[in-house]
Design a protein around this nucleic acid. Structure first.
Length: 491
RNA sequence: GGCCCGUUCGUCUAGUGGUUAGGACAUCAGGUUUUCAUCCUGAAAGCAGGGGUUCGAUUCCCCUACGGGCUACCA
């Protein structure tokens, strides 16, 4: 292998959304390129017109942008949501390379490595049915493989619908060398003469991707395991042209809990959905990177830069990995706690926009729930009780366990007095308030439980909530005492 | 059916011939605590099975089982 500049590509199809498994592939692509000061390119594989989805490319670019997985070459998107291409190996949108692909296909035919096929869909169907009926392996029967040049010429001129197929060897075998799996062998006779140019003139993946990878000087082809079995065809194309082979690496699949290939039916597979829900880019990257690979044994948290530095393609697992949301949730909460306050506020405050309160108050609320939420959106519901004027105590007991109402009244009345005495400068200092109130409770000879439960419930009307000290600190003296008075009225 | 890939706690994984098989998430139990969450401590939980090779196999080889992928004019 020559010393070539690392050039790695992400090659999505614009079929609607970014599959979480594809995203992991792109993350690895990106790591590898960055680690080696190489290029990371984005190429759009849109040779199947029937599956093209409007807006998919924009969507994809925006998601990658949000994740900070940016290509330095190929297709990208500007701030006005406009697609553009950059780099001197373009175009980077495959449909725009149609005639390049056709040129290559023609060359292959001239070299005797491919042939024109005029078989109709009906005939192909029949052949397959027959094969199935007789329990033989299905596949193209080679009907047009040895057509004479004259006949081909004649039928081409007659405008007959046709495709171009690879003319694969009928004997011998091929060994592919995979960076993750090592050597994998296949017998040529078992491999179908694949269509490389469809009847609409567009290349199929097999030709398009290989031709483009070569033209774009791609050094590492990282893709899902589902491509492993078609790699012989790809090697055949490379070798027919005498091109230098890239390094192939077939990633294990990401699986549903039932171990089948991660699919839409069994949950969210669209990366953008996770982003929309509020999963943080760094959490998503951290999580996905560790699904199938692990740099060390004793850490779970890695920055993107650390992952770039540590990434090792050869240490990627061979077995598929089940996608389980639990650890992602844990990571997301971790990153939520770790970020600086301002970034955290930027994330959370939009979810409190429906509430009428001043910024300082909302910021205190945001901080209060930081350890209790996995997704920013959860704060809306969790903190709702802090934004209402009148609490509804009908579903909760203000009294502690089997203690009397009189006792609760006594404690709450005292609490009002205590709170009013809090130094204004310490009004929002939960730690101070806790120490202060606990001392007073002790001085009275009361119990924490019989005092703090009524106090907390008065402030929240919730079975479960943050501590009364934190609630007082968030609400402030005035609102706190008002709430306690309300509770006293209902008692 | 054929070809190919894979198989360490429930899940993500570390491990490359000699380890009490390590960590994390989840679970459970204690502790802290007015509640919940956090936090702390601890527990339970794994080398798919069978043959080899070897003084010794989770690790190397073979077979079986199981799982998955591919088998399109989709990628």
């Amino acid at each position: 292998m020559l010393e070539r500049r690392f050039r790695v590509r992400a090659a999505p199809s614009p079929t609607g959304y970014m599959h979480i498994g594809n995203l992991r592939t792109y993350i690895y692509d990106y790591f590898l390129a960055k680690q080696n000061s190489g290029d990371f390119l984005l190429r759009i594989e849109d040779t199947d017109k029937s599956r093209f989805v409007e807006g998919a490319v924009e969507n994809l670019c925006n998601s990658l942008k949000q994740l900070g997985i940016e290509p330095n070459e190929g297709v990208w998107i500007d701030d006005d949501n406009k697609i553009f291409q950059r780099g001197d190996h373009g175009p980077y949108i495959q449909s725009e390379r149609k005639h390049i692909h056709q040129q290559y296909a023609k060359q292959l035919v001239e070299m005797g490595k491919a042939y024109y096929c005029f078989c109709t869909a009906e005939r192909l169907d029949e052949v397959r049915k027959m094969q199935e009926l007789t329990k033989r392996p299905t596949g193209y029967d080679g009907h047009c493989r040895d057509l004479s040049a004259e006949e081909v010429q004649k039928r081409l001129e007659a405008g007959e619908s046709h495709v171009i197929r690879l003319k694969l060897p009928k004997e011998g075998s091929v060994t592919i060398n995979d960076a993750i799996r090592g050597e994998v062998g296949f017998e040529w006779k078992l491999i179908d003469d694949q269509v490389i140019i469809k009847s609409d003139g567009m290349a199929t993946y097999h030709l398009a991707a290989m031709a483009d990878d070569h033209d774009m000087e791609i050094t590492h082809v990282i893709r899902g395991e589902e491509w492993l079995s078609s790699t012989p065809k790809h090697i055949f194309i490379y070798e027919s042209f005498g091109w230098e082979l890239p390094i192939f690496a077939h990633l294990p699949l990401i699986l549903n809990p039932d171990k089948s290939k991660l699919s839409k039916r069994q949950g969210d597979v669209a990366a953008e959905d996770y982003l929309k829900k509020g999963y943080l880019p760094q959490a998503l990257i951290n999580f996905l990177a560790l699904l199938g690979w692990n740099p060390t044994a004793d850490r779970e948290i890695y920055t993107k830069q650390e992952l770039i530095d540590l990434f090792d393609l050869t240490k990627v697992n061979k077995a598929g990995a089940v996608f389980q949301i639990d650890k992602l949730n844990w990571l997301n909460n971790h990153y939520l706690r770790e970020m600086d306050n301002q970034s955290y506020f930027d994330l959370i405050l939009p979810h409190l926009s429906s509430y009428n309160a001043d910024l300082k108050f909302k910021q205190r609320v945001a901080l209060l729930f930081r350890e209790r939420i996995i997704l920013p959106s959860e704060i809306t519901e969790q903190s709702a009780f802090l934004f209402v004027d009148k609490l509804d105590y009908s579903n909760i007991s203000i009294t502690w366990k089997d203690r009397s109402k009189d006792e609760a009244r006594e404690r709450l009345t005292a609490a009002i007095g205590w709170i009013e005495q809090i130094d204004d400068s310490k009004e929002h200092d939960a730690k101070h308030i806790e120490e202060y109130i606990k001392n007073l409770i002790q001085a009275q000879g009361w119990g924490n439980g019989d005092t703090l439960w009524p106090l907390r419930v008065s402030l929240s009307a919730q079975e479960k909530s943050p501590s009364p000290f934190e609630l007082i600190a968030v609400l402030g003296k005035k609102q706190s005492t008002a709430r306690i008075r309300q509770a006293l009225e209902t008692l």
